[in-house]
Design a protein around this nucleic acid. Sequence first.
RNA 1: GGAAAGGUGGCAGAGUGGUUGAAUGCGGCGGUCUCGAAAACCGUUGUUCGGCAUUGUCGAACCGGGGGUUCGAAUCCCCCCCUUUCCGCCA
Length: 425
Amino acid sequence: MLDIKFIRENPELVKQSVENKNEKSTVDEVLVLDKQRRENLQKVEELKAKKNKVSGEVARMKKAGENTDEIVAEMKSVSDSIKELDDQLRDIDEKLTNLLLWIPNLPHTSVPVGKSAAENVVVRTWLPEGFKFENEEPVLDHFDLGKKHNILDFERGAKISGSGFPVYVGKGATLERSLINYMLDFHINHHDYTEIFPPFVVNRDSMKGTGQIPKMEDDMYHATKDDLFLIPTAEVPITNLHRNDILDEKNLPIKYAGYSACFRREAGSYGKDSKGFLRLHQFNKVEMVKFVKPENSYDELEALVKDAEDILQALQIPYRILMLCSGDLSFSAAKCYDIETWSPAENKWLEASSCSNFESFQARRANIRFRKESDKKLEFVHTLNGSGLATSRLMVSILENYQTPEGKIIVPKVLQKYTGFEIIG
RNA sequence: GGAAAGGUGGCAGAGUGGUUGAAUGCGGCGGUCUCGAAAACCGUUGUUCGGCAUUGUCGAACCGGGGGUUCGAAUCCCCCCCUUUCCGCCA
């Protein structure tokens, strides 16, 4: 959520930014309602001031034994006017907050303006030593590898739950679990994150806090009886840990890393991109979340990307970093880097991580503030989060990049002490 | 699912219709004392919105949330949410 004062003072800038993000603008409606709201507010507050003053007088008169019939009758009509104006005001307020929720965050000035993913900028590419994009031998894709070694079972997943719910079997399950543990350990031991094991189901307030509601409500699994939602990412419970909190400046930055299963309905995407692991309704992810001071949030964003990269380098997975253009930025993000890992079978890059700075956009909505040491004033923190990383996409890259000419799969060296085996097949 | 208790400022905890934004304690901040620190003592101490003015002033709102009664509600009434404890069920 943006600051209404900022919108009021910079309407053209906000409109332009919304357009750059390919979002529909409600800025004009917001400005009209905001003006109405302030006018009504002034009127009703004037009446309330009068009411408060006279009520005090009534108390004094009663104590003195004077007759208050006349003054009380007059105040009754004032009270009625107040009630009427308050009703109108409530109406305006409701509409206004609703509209405000539909205005996206502004892209940071360093973000390139662009319409679509095609205009994202490759920042850097990292390849393991000796890596080649061309393969002399034919390579199997992760789907066929999974079937061949009986480590991934999509059919049985479909039987028990539906498509997009894979079953990990045997060494596949062990590898998945190892990967999660490895990444968590790495962030805790080398990057100074505190581990969080969050609930996978959250309430409506939490979904509003991180901005999934209203825009993405239909993309989430919803337990209607209890009005609880399955989390699409651990970002939701972890960021909401501090909803309505006032944090100590000396505790910033706060850095959390947590594993969760992630659930996404995301109806309407079929075909090649949804084969196997590429598009799932349930997948596993280690998420990093940071609460930081506004003045260094962009340094923290660079560090966040680095934290995810460290894992990929340790795993020796080829990857590249993209800076998303304005049109490809998510609703809440001010700036975002995607990390894509290489799939030799698909012959393309797959998104394995998204690292974003939300500035105060989420913090304002979730009301997460800190008290500044310098002047003791309250200020919204900046929140950031990034996948560190999603195992599904990573698994595609591991299986495909680590296959031998005979079709076996070598376990990445750093994972071997977690899996307890070195090869699959 | 059943029963009971409770939700008040950063925290603890008073307050059951009339200058109550709210006693008291802790914490925080400033000061006295001290070479310095601690202790002691004195003073101070919220947030949000709006108007004007630009770092101040005036007004409003805020005691879990929403509605109601009243000239006036933290205090009375109704609905909802949450927490804790006990019981039941259960991995």
